[in-house]
Design a protein around this nucleic acid. Structure first.
Lengths: 142, 142
DNA sequence: TATTGTTATACTCTATAACTATA
DNA sequence: TATAGTTATAGAGTATAACAATA
C-alpha cells in the first residue's frame, strides 16, 4: 500500500517537475542566449571565477566544447578570459558586468513568472507549498 | 509581507524544480535517445497517431526539423509513417511496439529514481508532498 | 612526462528557402 | 492558389583526435 502510493506520487511529481521546468526555462532575459551559455554564466555568478577545465567538468562537457562556449561568451562581452598568474597553462574565466546584468534579469523574469502563478493560489495552498519546498529541495540536492 | 514571502517561495521553488528536472531527465531507458526524439515518442504514446505538421507545432519546431526527427525514429523502428487515406498530402506518424516499450521503460526508470528518493522520507513528509503535488500540477498546467 | 588548453574535423539538431505533390 | 511535406543548405553545440605551451 505504501509502495503503491509512493510510486504514484513519484509519477505525478516527475511529470509536474518536468513540465514546470520547461515553462520556467522558457523565461530568459535574452532569447538569443542558449541554455549552455546561460548555465555557465549562472555558475560564474554563483561561484566566482573558474578555469576552463573546471567549468567543463561541472557542466559535463569536454574542454574543446567549453572552449567554444567561452569564445562565444567572450565575443558577446558576458565573460572575460585571462591567463592564471601562477600557472601559465591555465586560463581563468570570469563573468563581466554585462554578464551579471543578464543573469540578474533572467533570474528576475523566472521568479516573476513563478510569483505571478503563486499569487493566484489561496493562502493555505501557498503555506502548503512553502512547507513542501524544503523537502523537494532536499530531494534535488541528494 | 505576503509579497516578500511569495517571491522567496517562487525563487526556491524555481531553483528546486530546475534542479530536480535535470536529475530526472538524466534517467533514460536508452542513452542514445535524444530529448527531442523521446519527447515525440511520449506525445504519440499519450495522444495517439498525429500528422507531421501537428507534431512539429506541439513540439515547437519547424516541419523540416520534425521531418528529420521522424526519419531517425522510423529508421530506429520506434515509429511508423503512412500517408493519410483521405488526404494524400498528409502523413500519419504512429508509435510502434518497440517505441511503446522504450517509453514504458523510460517512464519506469524515471519513476524509480523518484520513488527511491521518496522512500527515504518520513511518512509525514510524503503526505506533505502528496498534498502539494496537485497544486504544483495546476501551476504547470496553467 | 603530465597537465591545460586549443585547433581540426565531424556528427546531431535546429533553422530558412526552395521544391513537389495534392486539394 | 493554398496546404502538407520534403530536400538543400547553413548555423550552433557537441564530440574525438591531434597539437602547443607550460609545469
Amino acid at each position: 500500500m505504501l509502495i503503491a502510493v509512493t510510486n504514484e506520487l513519484a509519477h505525478t511529481l516527475r511529470q509536474t517537475v518536468l513540465r514546470l521546468a520547461r515553462r520556467v526555462r522558457a523565461e530568459r532575459a535574452d532569447d538569443a542566449m542558449s541554455d549552455s551559455k546561460l548555465s555557465v554564466l549562472f555558475q560564474l555568478a554563483n561561484e566566482g571565477p573558474r578555469t576552463l577545465g573546471s567549468l567543463a567538468e561541472s557542466e559535463r562537457v569536454t574542454p574543446p566544447s567549453m572552449n567554444r562556449t567561452i569564445n562565444a561568451l567572450v565575443e558577446q562581452g558576458f565573460v572575460t578570459r585571462e591567463s592564471d598568474a601562477s600557472d601559465g597553462r591555465k586560463v581563468v574565466i570570469d563573468i563581466s558586468d554585462a554578464g551579471r546584468r543578464l543573469v540578474k534579469e533572467t533570474r528576475r523574469r523566472r521568479d516573476a513568472w513563478f510569483s505571478s502563478r503563486l499569487a493566484a493560489l489561496t493562502t493555505e495552498e501557498r503555506y502548503l507549498l512553502a512547507a513542501a519546498a524544503p523537502i523537494l529541495r532536499r530531494l534535488a540536492d541528494q
